[in-house]
Amino acid sequence: MHVSLDGFVAGPNGEIDWVRFDDDLVEDVQALVDSADTGLFGRVTYQLMESYWPTVADSPTASKHDLDHSRWLNPAPKIVFSRTLKNVHWQNTRIVKDHIGEEITRLVKQPGKNLILFASPTLGSTFMNLNLIDEYFFNINPVVLGKGKPLFRDQSEMRRLELVESKTYKNGVVSLRYGRGS
């Protein structure tokens, strides 16, 4: 999850042009993605990604990162959590409407790699409230946005986490990795 210093994951109109990437960071994000075999999404993030990733590899200008990421993303099983979404047009995707906690608990028990939640701050807050998240990865960008879409909202209780790792990148991003607190 890419976050501004003031805790936004996107600008007021969904802008993410402030997110800083460099080769080191891209490599680490890809390693994180490779540790998972299933993608989880809220509706808004899913729709954004569905409009981009299925065809990105066809573009002659696609970057290495785009190609690597699309090789994982397109065939991977994907679950979008939404009560309103009717149809999906991306391969290997299914919609889950409710009973989120039960669904995740069932998936976690199955053999396989990790489940990764992409962006999706609203769904992420729901996951947090249901105590479903084992690890958090935040890439703190050196910018104050002023307003936008917040990362954490409506947390019903105080939640202590455990810092697992912090890493500073040349471009000023600090990546913080947290696990469940004791």
Partner: peptide, 23 residues
């Protein structure tokens, strides 16, 4: 390393600013 869920935040939520900083 804690999410409090409530309380006064340091940064205004609706400020007219976009400030790039240098780590």
């Amino acid at each position: 390393p804690v999410v409090l869920g409530s309380g006064r935040r340091l940064f205004d939520d609706h400020a007219e600013m976009l400030k790039p900083l240098k780590l």
